[in-house]
């Protein structure tokens, strides 16, 4: 990308890795879009779109999902542009294109801005402006409110910032129906309440990384014991919330079974984590591999891994239940 050459070098992120100047490949720009995060967002957005239960032309439905994916990717690029300084200090993120010196930060910024505009405008033109407005709000919330403000300022960063990750099903629902009823917000609330136990479990065994970068994650600010207690409290609120779609008619019997059984396992793991010493000195991850953990942090790792599986199962079950109600001819 040539845009960066026109901008002052002051905006380029200094990095000790930047000296190794490899030319930017197109794959580096794909990496800026955080494809793994994008896939989760596509999945929850698709669930919202299908659960809305309104017929949408399949091509337009595909455009809605594309816009949600590109909007999420744009947020990722803006995040990598702004956070390049702290990314360079953390083991998990120092290989990203900007801190590694493969992509100039101004190029990451340009990509993020262009894709944000592209996704919002296309969503508005192809589907409706409610969905486009929600998508724009999500991008701004993630890139500005979370990345530029909350992340470096408060230990509640991922709690409040979690709203950005929770909105895709609402956007999908709005894209399909032009409205956002209670059930759409219920899906949003489930992801919102899932975020703190998920990220705090991860941060209990990666807090050294955050400490180096100066990011005020909960274990560093309130201590591991308080974090484990808060994880348990959020889990006690989150698991009953997962059952509520059954009461509103959004989820069926399969959903009831998955949410109830998974909820019990989730609570069990959260309780075991509460009783453990995860996050205490000596329980940190060793340097052999990113996801290698010492015995003391195993309970945190277990909850982190299961939280991903549980959320995936919840949304997959809802998706399948609603897809089964669609008659094949309705797709034509």
């Amino acid at each position: 990308m040539a845009m960066s050459e026109a901008l002052p070098t002051a905006v380029q992120t200094p990095s000790k890795h930047a000296a190794i100047k490899a030319p930017a490949r197109w794959q580096d720009f794909v990496q800026l879009l955080k494809p793994r995060v994008m896939s989760l967002v596509v999945f929850t957005g698709l669930t919202g779109l299908v659960c809305a239960g309104r017929w949408v032309h399949p091509f337009l439905a595909g455009i809605a999902i594309l816009c949600i994916a590109v909007g999420a990717g744009a947020s990722g690029a803006l995040n990598m542009w702004y956070d390049a300084d702290i990314d360079a200090k953390m083991r998990r993120t120092r290989g990203r294109p900007v801190p590694a010196g493969r992509v100039q930060s101004a190029d990451a910024l340009a990509l993020g801005v262009v894709l944000s505009l592209f996704s919002v405008m296309l969503m508005g033109m192809a589907l409706n402006w409610l969905a486009a407005g929600l998508l724009a709000f999500t991008i701004v919330f993630y890139a500005v409110v979370y990345t530029m403000w909350l992340k470096r300022w408060t230990a509640q960063n991922i709690v409040i910032g979690g709203l950005a990750g929770a909105l895709p099903p609402v956007i999908g629902w709005a894209a399909a129906s032009g409205s956002v009823p209670l059930n759409a917000w219920l899906l949003c609330a489930i992801i919102f309440m899932w975020t703190p136990p998920h990220f705090w479990a991860l941060s209990l065994y990666t807090s050294e990384d955050y400490k180096k970068a100066g990011v005020p994650m909960m274990p560093l600010v309130a201590g591991p014991a308080s974090t484990r207690k808060q994880i348990l409290i959020y889990s006690l609120l989150f698991t009953p919330l997962c059952l509520t779609p059954v009461l509103t008619g959004l989820g069926g019997l399969a959903y009831l079974a998955v949410s109830a059984l998974g909820g019990v396992v989730f609570l069990l793991l959260a309780f075991r984590l509460f009783r453990s010493k995860a996050g205490e000195t000596g329980a940190q991850r060793n340097d052999d591999g990113l996801y290698d953990v010492r015995a003391g942090a195993k309970d945190a790792r277990n909850l982190f891994a299961f939280s991903i599986l549980y959320l995936t199962l919840l949304f997959a079950t809802l998706l399948v239940e609603h897809l089964m109600t669609i008659k094949p001819l309705e797709l034509l």
């Binding site: 990308m1 930017a24 490949r25 197109w26 720009f29 091509f59 594309l66 296309l122 192809a126």
Partner: peptide
């Protein structure tokens, strides 16, 4: 690397034009 970036950009733009047309 530059050729690869240029091709990716061209394909992206072409895809955008096609998408807007079909929409």
């Amino acid at each position: 690397a530059r050729r690869g970036r240029n091709i990716a950009l061209a394909l992206g733009l072409a895809l955008f034009v096609i998408l807007v047309f079909v929409v």
